[in-house]
Amino acid sequence: NQESVVAAQLIPINTALTLVMMTTRVVSPTGIPAEDIPRLISMQVNQVVPMGTTLMPDMVKGYA
């Protein structure tokens, strides 16, 4: 089963992602794949992401 990127903390809107903000977990439905974490660093979220929420492609500016 593929791991997806999950918020390790509350991420406010327009925050640039850092490694410490993200963790990985096997979730359903699947979100952004864990191997894309290096690509996500410094990208901004376009909404508030509560802790434990799976990051979906449409939540990250410039990802999709």
Results as ranks from 00 to 15, higher is better:
11 I>F: 01
17 L>W: 01
29 P>C: 15
36 D>I: 07
24 T>I: 12
52 G>S: 11
38 P>C: 05
48 V>L: 14
33 P>A: 10
1 N>T: 15
2 Q>P: 14
44 Q>D: 04
47 Q>H: 13
12 P>Q: 07
64 A>C: 15
25 R>P: 01
15 T>P: 00
31 G>S: 03
23 T>R: 14
44 Q>E: 07
10 L>H: 15
31 G>M: 03
14 N>L: 06
25 R>T: 04
45 V>F: 01
47 Q>W: 05
4 S>H: 02
7 A>V: 03
46 N>D: 07
48 V>E: 13
55 L>P: 01
47 Q>G: 05
20 V>E: 04
31 G>N: 01
12 P>I: 03
34 A>D: 06
25 R>L: 07
52 G>H: 13
42 S>I: 02
62 G>K: 09
12 P>H: 11
4 S>T: 05
25 R>N: 05
57 P>Y: 11
44 Q>P: 07
50 P>S: 09
16 A>L: 04
42 S>A: 13
50 P>A: 13
18 T>W: 03
3 E>T: 05
64 A>P: 10
6 V>A: 06
27 V>Y: 03
36 D>Q: 15
44 Q>A: 10
36 D>L: 13
21 M>T: 04
32 I>T: 02
1 N>C: 13
11 I>D: 00
35 E>N: 14
48 V>Y: 09
6 V>D: 00
15 T>F: 08
54 T>P: 05
61 K>G: 05
45 V>R: 00
41 I>G: 02
21 M>F: 15
26 V>Y: 10
61 K>Q: 07
24 T>F: 14
62 G>E: 07
25 R>Q: 12
54 T>Q: 03
33 P>Q: 08
55 L>W: 01
51 M>P: 06
56 M>Q: 12
9 Q>V: 05
60 V>D: 01
30 T>Y: 14
5 V>M: 02
26 V>E: 15
3 E>C: 10
17 L>F: 02
62 G>H: 10
36 D>F: 11
21 M>E: 02
25 R>V: 15
34 A>F: 05
33 P>C: 14
7 A>E: 01
28 S>D: 15
39 R>F: 05
60 V>I: 11
34 A>C: 08
40 L>M: 06
24 T>C: 07
19 L>G: 05
2 Q>V: 14
4 S>E: 00
8 A>L: 11
56 M>K: 14
1 N>K: 04
18 T>Y: 03
12 P>F: 04
56 M>W: 04
4 S>P: 01
